[in-house]
């Protein structure tokens, strides 16, 4: 049932937006084209970052260092019900958006998108954010230096998200 629901969300969402646009008398196709151009720009912007980071992550994996790190932290991950393959993702997720995207990519290509590790990695990617980046940009932008208990609170959210991804992936997909 939850899987069926997941299938319907995208088309329902798209249909709703287009119909709402028509009723608001927006020239939907022109508007769509403008947005699509933004998509082109965004893609062009992330490409250099992704090249740098994916090269680095692929090197880390080829050197055997990623596997060593994963093995060291395997007991910790398994203790909270996470597959060990997502260890590098858990470490990099709060720091870099493109970096974690590079790691999800490598987890999916190694284990398959619908494997347990693949699903958990996808759920982590979808349910957490680049914590340190957001903190730096937002507080830096307004010159607030004493950020009190922001970091522990934000990291509590990240940790909760990661631990739950493992548990809920089992619940939702019966793995």
């Amino acid at each position: 049932m939850p899987e069926k629901l997941g299938d319907c969300i995208m088309p329902a969402f798209a249909a709703f937006i287009i119909i709402y646009g028509l009723f608001s008398r927006v020239s939907v196709f022109d508007c769509f084209l403008n947005g699509a151009k933004d998509g082109l720009k965004t893609s062009a912007n992330i490409l250099p970052t992704l090249i740098g980071l994916l090269a680095a992550v692929t090197m880390l994996r080829a050197s055997g260092a990623l596997e060593a790190l994963t093995n060291v932290l395997k007991p910790v991950a398994n203790a909270v019900g996470l597959p060990e393959q997502v260890v590098p993702l858990a470490l990099l997720r709060p720091v870099s958006g493109s970096g974690s995207m590079a790691i999800v990519e490598s987890i999916l290509s190694e284990n398959g998108a619908d494997s347990f590790a693949g699903r958990v990695a996808s759920v982590i990617q979808g349910s957490t954010e680049t914590t340190f980046y957001a903190v730096a940009v937002y507080y830096g932008g307004v010159g607030i230096k004493n950020i009190a208990h922001t970091i522990p609170s934000a990291l509590t959210a990240d940790l909760t998200g990661m631990v739950l991804s493992g548990i809920l992936a089992k619940v939702f997909f019966g793995m």
């Binding site: 937006i17 287009i18 709402y20 646009g21 927006v26 769509f32 947005g35 699509a36 151009k37 998509g39």
Partner: peptide
């Protein structure tokens, strides 16, 4: 997919959704 998504979202923005 990226362009498709951004295009749809632009409609949401313009229609004040």
């Amino acid at each position: 997919a990226m362009c498709m998504w951004n295009g749809l979202m632009k409609i949401a923005e313009e229609s004040r959704l």
